[in-house]
Design a protein around this nucleic acid. Structure first.
Lengths: 192, 192
DNA sequence: CTACGTGATTACAGCGACTGAAATCACCTG
DNA sequence: CAGGTGATTTCAGTCGCTGTAATCACGTAG
């Protein structure tokens, strides 16, 4: 075993989540994270663009799965149903990770800077979803609205999944949230 | 006229928008903004929490109008129609400000840090909207979903309003976007 | 006119996030 | 064993942001 332990990125991510959880995001310095991972501050910034990004390492993989699932489904079903397929796919990805995901979310919810980054990642997913919808013939503004709706359903379903006590099927919560959205957007009489 | 010119906050906001537009957000230092406003860096931070916040001075007023309009309308119409009333109200607030708003939005869109802050403000509006809906008897998860949908319609309608060439009624674009959302969420057959 | 209170502004020192450049290190290859 | 390569480190520096205490402009009471 060499002097350089393997998986520096992972060690940094683990150290960061631990420290953010223990003493809070703002009270943790990047130097402390690096030291716990057996590295230096400069090396942290070689692996992650900033102090926030270390919590979002899996975001790209998540987005890719979501968008690819929706994109595939669009070949055979309507946009709103394709979104349901995507939501089901990411449910499969997160199932079994609830404790880990919950710890991460607790850190994010405790700090506005991290919430901002979280929202930016979701906005990126929305933009990529809208792009996929457009490539499959959905016109604006329907494409952007459908994408935003899909992300909104994810947000709400995700929140309910984390809040649930016992074992709880995430995919079921996602489908329920989507149905609720359909109900609430269909509910009015029109006021103009 | 004393040595202290009036309206320091406004001068800082104007100077910031000018400099962010001229040379970009990242290339502008807070010291430069303060100097253009005839003040010091420290005084900037007495008025604004950080370098981003100076672009969002009117956000609170905007949120208040939106939420109050929806809240009032909820006394007599369904949630989705109450959101339509709120969207109409903020359209009235922004009408006539398009050039100014467009300049601000150009700066925001050119920088991820500012997009993050923008998204956080919208999330705050969504949370407050959901709260109003709950106070009027809407249960979760419908309240959160309706609030997210309302903000999504605003985002899309706002973007289209800024992109439009000639004079264009914002309230009409908002209504069209809302109708598009209704259409796209009602479109599927269900896949499960 | 002077003393004093008040709120805004400033000066100053300092921490921490982040960056660029160059040196060093571990390892692999010819 | 010499040399190349990529990861890590060292170092110096900029800038966002904060706490503290001094100073300033102005209104008011004596």
């Amino acid at each position: 075993m060499g002097r350089w332990e393997p998986n520096a990125r992972g060690r940094l991510a683990t150290a960061a989540l631990e420290l953010y959880s223990e003493r809070g995001y703002e009270q943790t310095t990047v130097t402390e994270i690096a030291k716990r991972a057996g590295l230096t501050e400069r090396t942290f910034f070689n692996h992650y663009a900033d102090k926030r990004e270390v919590l979002f390492a899996t975001s790209g993989e998540f987005q890719e799965l979501f968008v690819r699932s929706v994109s595939d489904a669009l070949k055979s079903v309507a946009p709103i149903d394709a979104l349901a397929v995507g939501l089901d796919a990411i449910s499969g990805m997160l199932t079994g990770q609830r404790d880990c995901v919950r710890a991460r979310q607790a850190v994010i919810m405790a700090n506005p800077e991290l919430q901002e980054r979280d929202l930016l990642k979701l906005a990126s997913i929305s933009a990529t979803l809208a792009d996929a919808l457009r490539r499959h013939g959905v016109t604006e503004p329907a494409a952007s609205l459908a994408a935003e709706a899909g992300v909104a359903v994810f947000k709400v379903g995700f929140e309910r999944w984390l809040a649930a006590d016992g074992e709880c099927e995430m995919s079921r919560l996602m489908r329920e949230s989507l149905d609720e959205l359909k109900a609430v957007t269909a509910g009015g009489q029109g006021v103009f």
